[in-house]
């Protein structure tokens, strides 16, 4: 029984939140890794793109709510999501036309592209602020729980509570659908394959008559979509705050690099490695320890790291990977 209680506690406080967070990171890292493999630079504007996309979704959600449109037990934001994707992807395409295209033409060094993406980051940041401000916003509506603590107790009779929030389920389900669609696209469609070809060997792709402008355009559209979805899911699960999204850049980059930057499977694996390490290391294990070791009450919280240092976890894993395996767990593109 005690063992079961420990298991429930771990599921409730570690496995469920880390899975949801990992799915959000994975979607973010997929966006970063896609830009990296096609356009060959680390996009520092990605966090702010996520913030922008989510801002648009929130505004549209409010619009729907004002019109009395709802999505039943699901959050209205899911209805607004497609519109947010369209707006964000359009902005990405516009940014490419106005900003990035020129640097591709002059074959700028990757590090210059990173600098350019910092400029884009400023603009995105400003747009998000104009759009929706800097405050924390909760925009989740609909049913809050799939299983709440009372239901759990009635169902199992266990004293240790377990809750499953609907946003967590929505996050995971959406992420699975999106990843499935993305892999289907990259693996089965002509356009998707041409993107992989372009990522593999740009010169040969050109020789084969693959249109680089089309590849790049599709990449930005997908990146906009991934950023908006990742941002919206994160915002539904936790809350929206523009600055938090900028800070997400670190765990997202860490996920992409840990998995092997440029490798989509790696991005997903990396997302979960980072999320489980972060949640696991900052969780106070006291309860679990008390269940598992009878007759012993630890005096501390048995928390390895304060949650204030959660970004240190991403950083440390990033550093370890850079030291021991710079190409990442799954072989990424050249270091």
């Amino acid at each position: 029984m005690e063992f079961l209680n420990a298991l429930v506690a771990i599921t409730n406080y570690v496995i469920i939140p880390a899975t949801a967070y990992g799915a959000q990171l994975a979607l973010g890292a997929l966006g970063v890794t896609l830009v990296y493999s096609i356009l060959r630079f680390s996009n520092f504007a990605h966090g702010d793109t996520m913030a922008f996309g989510t801002g648009v979704v929130i505004l549209i959600t409010w619009g729907f709510q004002a019109m009395g449109i709802s999505f039943g037990p699901l959050p209205t934001a899911l209805l607004a999501l497609p519109f947010g994707i369209v707006v964000t992807s359009a902005l990405m395409l516009g940014t490419d036309k106005v900003v990035y295209q020129y640097y591709r033409k002059v074959k700028a060094a990757p590090v210059v592209m990173v600098m350019v993406s910092v400029g884009v980051m400023f603009i995105m940041n400003a747009l998000t602020r104009f759009l929706i401000g800097v405050d924390q916003i909760n925009f989740a509506d609909g049913a809050r729980f799939v299983i709440n603590a009372r239901q759990w107790r009635e169902m199992t009779g266990m004293s240790e509570p377990l809750t499953l929030r609907s946003t967590q389920v929505i996050t995971v389900v959406t992420a699975i659908l999106v990843v499935w669609a993305l892999f289907w696209f990259l693996g089965r469609t002509r356009t998707g394959k041409s993107m992989r070809a372009f990522s593999d060997n740009e010169d040969l792709a050109l020789l084969s008559g693959i249109d680089p402008n089309r590849v790049v355009a599709v990449t930005w559209i997908i990146t906009g979509a991934l950023a908006t979805i990742a941002g919206t899911l994160y915002g539904l699960d936790k809350s929206f705050k523009a600055f938090t999204y900028f800070q997400l850049l670190l765990p997202i980059f860490a996920s992409a690099i840990v998995g092997g930057i440029g490798n989509p499977v790696g991005a997903i694996a990396g997302g979960f490695v980072i999320s489980f390490s972060e949640v696991g290391l900052t969780y106070a294990w006291k309860k679990v320890v008390t269940y598992l070791i009878p007759n012993w009450e630890p005096d501390g919280l048995v928390q390895l790291l304060s949650t204030d240092y959660k970004y240190a976890v991403s950083f440390t894993i990033l550093i370890l990977v850079l030291i021991f395996k710079p190409t990442g767990l799954f072989k990424g593109k050249i270091v």
Partner: peptide
């Protein structure tokens, strides 16, 4: 057929040929 880097390394043989026929 260039001297170096003349295939798409992470794509299958069939996909390589398919990309050859892209146009």
């Amino acid at each position: 057929v260039p001297q170096v880097n003349n295939v798409f390394p992470t794509m299958s043989v069939e996909e390589n040929l398919e990309m050859g026929a892209f146009i």
